[in-house]
Design a protein around this nucleic acid. Structure first.
Lengths: 203, 203, 203, 203
DNA sequence: CATGAATGAGAGTTCATTCAT
DNA sequence: GATGAATGAACTCTCATTCAT
């Protein structure tokens, strides 16, 4: 392993260090609430150093969103192996929620955090997100085609299921479950997932 | 009515003036985008004046959260008049979503923004929220009691319905509907609400 | 004298304080070399205070240029009283140079300092400068009309005289007379002025 | 020619490379607008490399001033060939102005920029400048000796001519010709030069 | 010889906040 | 009760400069 590759690795490590700190902070205080200084302090470097790795604040944000989208994809995509569309759909849902529970910061970044206005329509991240979403909709479509539902309104079915899953995860991620005792929350989520699956069966 | 009470009234009016302006601005520019100065300019007072009514920016924030809870209650609570529990439940859902759509910032404040839990005002706000939530759960319970559902798991039913509604509104409020064309978004929301109602009927 | 007028006066004093410090600094280090912080330090106020009196750095600069233009006008304009155009012209030149010698900072600001790019075509300052310049050209024209010169090329005559005067003052203001012993410099300038007057007589 | 001298040569080449880039950039963006980074990028080296050749930014500045003095000398000095002193004087003036027009930044550096007087390089530069100036004065003296003027005050004649030329170039370099339409400016300068020559003839 | 990495200092600017009036 | 004046602290970002490699 040569010098070059070591340097590359170190550079990559530094970028990860920055992203890690940024992620934590963005989650806690929102995009606007976080300053480059905050990030720098968190990793114990000078603010100027950050600029050696990322052009500006929004680039850090986008890098993070891309990472998050990639992690999400990797977490969910194994379901492509499942042939039966209904089972694939259920497993997709389970994994979607599981991703949110295991990586609340990433989920937050992808689906909750208010993004800086330069919308990212043409960003890699957006493509990645769209791809996963499309796969989800196609799976619903496959279920529709295979007559798993009475309804044939693929779009609305997909959207409705997404609403439920997103709502469920969001309430966790943004700590709106305080009226339920800590130890019952996860169980409730599991039950609710089972219930929406049941409900979907009769769609 | 004495001098004291008039002064109190005037003080209250001023507080309302501030909150009103703050709300409008938060809606336009987001919480972080608004400064005390902005609020002061909007009501044509000096920044220092604000401090005569609110200790600091965060206190305005908490006052707003309380306001939001009140607005939400007023928006939803007319449904207490509906005697039939199923109809009451459906109307509750409709109004909950309607509130979120009409007051995205208030909804945001109540259900999405990460908040510190200190503050007195915040406790008032919390009580108010709990009350509305309880009423919702009781309505579900009434439906269960009246055998509107096969399932009798009130808690899970209520939670599941909330997840859907919250997911639906959140996706709007935090602008995660970009993959759907602007003009179709509301229709989709309406269809989804109809669908979850249908699904609930067969619970 | 009421409170209002006292406040106004204090405000005006503060503006003068800022302008005074700024003038000195701009001269020494050029527009780009001076920071708002520098100015603030010079007058022992905080940087933020400056912004209570001037919107930004360029506004200070423009205010200063305007002041300079006004002082220059007041210094020179008494010559309007002189009826004989030739005498008026000579006196104009003498006073122009005198202004430069007595107020090197102001002269610098008006004719040497590189200005921030937002050109000031429509600024009051520009108008003022143009007015004085026009008066100068008109005086030359009057001399031409009265056959004081053989040449009738008013524009070139005016410009040539200006070049000399500006060159003379600039060499002083920007300290390029070092090859002449300190004590002889002013005499040299006086002689040169006399010489250009002589030369003009034979134009 | 040994290794040492080759290395010296290469070092000199590098210094020239840096100065060349610096000059180009100074011309485009002004002294303050140029950073070491900019220079480094322009020559495709790292910023740190610059420091192997110049201690700091100001040293580049002084080196440039010296360069400027050399370029000026090379631009003007061919006139030594002209035997007739009057023709030599006129051509000197023409070339002086021409140098200023063609290299406004160099001219600026030499005759307008406020400079600290420390630095060795600067002394070299100063000697060079003095030499050219002396040559100019000697040429005027030659004209006086050859009775080209009625006046015999060599010093004042030289200074007066210099004032005109310097004034003319300065007004260009520091952009004080805005009241004349862009396309007429050069013509005006040419006419003014012709006029001062005429005026000198009758001195 | 050349450089990548790092930083302290500083730029312009805005903000929440205080306090004397 | 209201405010004008003031400021310390913070912001994003760039720069000149150093140093280990």
């Amino acid at each position: 392993m040569g010098i070059v590759s070591r340097k590359e690795r170190e550079k990559e490590e530094m970028r990860q260090l920055i992203l890690g700190a940024a992620l934590k902070l963005f989650r806690e205080k929102g995009y606007d609430g976080v300053s480059i200084r905050n990030i720098a302090e968190a990793i114990e470097y000078s603010p100027a150093t950050i600029y050696l790795y990322y052009k500006d604040k929004s680039e850090i944000f986008f890098a993070l969103q891309y990472e998050a989208a990639a992690v999400k994809r990797d977490h969910i995509m194994p379901v492509v192996e499942i042939e039966n569309p209904w089972e694939r759909l259920v497993e997709f849902g389970r994994r979607y929620i599981d991703f949110g529970m295991k990586h609340p910061d990433l989920y937050d970044l992808l689906f909750i955090t208010l993004t800086p206005m330069e919308s990212m329509e043409n960003q890699e991240c957006w493509k990645l997100g769209i791809a996963t979403h499309s796969f989800f909709v196609e799976t619903v479509q496959a279920c529709v085609d295979a007559r798993y539902f009475k309804s044939t309104d693929t779009e609305t079915i997909a959207y409705t299921l997404w609403c439920h899953a997103h709502g469920l995860v969001s309430l966790f991620v943004r700590e709106r479950m305080r009226m339920y005792p800590e130890e019952k929350r996860e169980e409730l989520a599991r039950k609710s997932f089972a219930m929406i699956v049941k409900m979907a069966e009769n769609l």
